[in-house]
Simulated assay, not measured.
Amino acid sequence: MLLDVLIAACAALAALGVMLIGFKLLRTVPPRWLGPVVAAVAVVAVTATLRYQWAYRVEAMLPPEMVVIERLGTRSPFEPWSYLKPVTTTLVVADRGTLRTNPAHADLVLINVLVVGRARDTLFTRHLVDCAGRREATFPPNVTFTSEGLPDGLIWAADAPPALLNTACAVSS
Rank of each mutant, 00 (worst) to 15 (best):
V143L: 02
F145R: 05
D121K: 11
T98K: 10
A132R: 14
P103F: 10
R135M: 02
T144S: 10
D159R: 05
L108H: 08
F145N: 00
P86K: 05
D121T: 11
A132W: 09
T90H: 07
T138S: 11
G149R: 09
C131D: 05
F124G: 03
D130K: 02
A119E: 15
L154K: 11
V113F: 11
A160G: 08
T125P: 02
D159Q: 04
L99C: 05
T138L: 14
R100V: 15
D121M: 07
D130S: 01
A157W: 13
C131H: 09
L108S: 00
P151Q: 01
R135F: 01
S147M: 10
R120S: 07
R120W: 13
R120I: 04
G133Y: 08
T98R: 11
V129C: 00
F145H: 03
E136Y: 15
N142F: 07
W156R: 06
R120C: 03
V109W: 04
P151F: 07
P141Q: 08
N102L: 06
L110I: 05
A104C: 04
R134S: 13
R135L: 02
R120F: 11
L114Y: 15
D107N: 12
T90M: 08
A158K: 15
A106P: 12
A158D: 15
V92P: 10
A157H: 15
L110G: 06
N102S: 10
R96A: 00
D95C: 04
F145S: 00
D121H: 10
A119F: 15
E148I: 06
F124T: 08
A158V: 13
H105T: 01
R135Q: 09
A137T: 05
F145T: 01
W156Q: 05
R135W: 02
V143C: 01
T101V: 12
A119K: 14
V115Q: 10
V109T: 09
L99H: 06
A157D: 15
A94P: 10
T138I: 14
L128S: 03
T144H: 11
